[in-house]
């Protein structure tokens, strides 16, 4: 088996690791880089708990072979907060009680960040669509959807305030 060296920028930091063919991006993040925020719920692309951003787009990292994304820019939940300062989406989840067990939360946050990056003022339907690949077994989704709408508003207000 050929082992390949994969170079990635993860949360702004250059990382290099060795990967066998078939190593998923999720496995590399968790086992080799120690970033256990992304969760392995199903390992078949159906639950969304492993969602990370690959060059800004949300992907289920359990289905991405690590060797195919050499040179990519990866964002994981670990990179969202700025020190102790949570991102707007994280803070809105916290304030809105949008998590219970928390297993889905890292994936939900990344799907939400990706949505708000491309659509700062989404409708509830657009939020539903953006998180439709993320399974949550605890919350009933409603608090998650309102937290994402709330985060969108916080972000818009912030942008206005800086203009």
């Amino acid at each position: 088996m050929t082992v390949t060296i994969v170079n990635l920028k993860v949360n702004g930091v250059d990382q290099a690791f060795m990967a066998r063919p078939g190593t998923t991006l999720l496995l590399a993040l968790r086992e080799q880089l120690g970033l256990t925020g992304a969760k392995r719920g199903c390992a078949q692309g159906a639950c969304g708990s492993c969602t990370v951003l690959l060059d800004g787009a949300p992907v289920v990292s359990c289905l991405v072979p690590a060797t195919t994304v050499d040179g990519a820019d990866i964002a994981t939940v670990e990179g969202l907060a700025d020190g102790q300062q949570l991102s707007d989406v994280q803070q809105a989840f916290l304030d809105g009680f949008a998590t219970q067990c928390g297993f889905c939360t890292p994936g939900m946050l990344m799907s939400a960040e990706a949505l708000l990056a491309r659509n700062p003022d989404p409708t509830a339907d657009e939020v539903n669509e953006a998180i439709s690949g993320n399974v949550c077994r605890c919350t009933g989704y409603a608090p998650i959807v309102s937290a994402i709408l709330d985060a969108a508003e916080r972000r818009r207000n912030r942008v206005e305030a800086t203009h």
Binding site: Q44, C47, D125, V127, S132, V135, R137, Y141, A142
Partner: peptide, 17 residues
């Protein structure tokens, strides 16, 4: 046996409570 076949309501299928 998995989430692909085991159906659960998604965010668009929840009632107003």
């Amino acid at each position: 046996i998995d989430f692909c076949e085991y159906l659960m309501p998604g965010p668009a299928e929840i009632p107003v409570q």
